[in-house]
Amino acid sequence: MSDSLIPQNLKYATTHEWILLEGEVATLGITDHAQHELGDIVFVELPEVGQKVEPGKGVAVIEAVKTVADVYAPAAGEVVEVNTVLADDAGSINRDAYGSWIVKIRLSGPLPSDLLDASGYQAQL
C-alpha cells in the first residue's frame, strides 16, 4: 500500500482514523488506506451533535457496497459538529479521505499517547 497518502501533519489510530487536533477539538476522518480497503462508500451514519463519545467506541458507521466499518473515537469527549456533506455525498471520502472529515469532537482530556505519527502509521500498513 505504498501508494496510500499519509499527510505529515496528522495523528493516526491503528484502526485507520486520522485525527487533527486544534485546541481541544479533534477533527476525525478515515485514512486513504482505509477508504481504499473499503471500496465504494455509499453511506455514513453520523452521530448527533452533543453525543458523548468514549475512547475506542464507535462514533460513526461507514457503509461501503461490500462491507460496513465503525469509526472509533480516539478519546472521550462530545460531538460538536458532523460533516453533513457526507449525508448526500458519502463517496467524497473515496475521492479525498483527508478533505472529508466525519466528526469534530471536543475532547474532555488529552489525546492518548499511543496515537501514531505519519511514519508510524505507514510502518503498520
Binding site: H36, E37, G39, D40, V42, V65, K66, N94
Partner: peptide, 20 residues
C-alpha cells in the same frame, strides 16, 4: 485488482470500483 480470499481462491473483488 484488489485480491481477496474466496472459497479457497485468491480472487479479484474489484479493479477500479464495484459501482463503476
Amino acid at each position: 485488482a484488489r485480491m481477496v480470499p474466496f472459497s479457497g481462491w485468491n480472487m479479484p473483488v474489484q479493479y477500479k470500483g464495484i459501482v463503476e
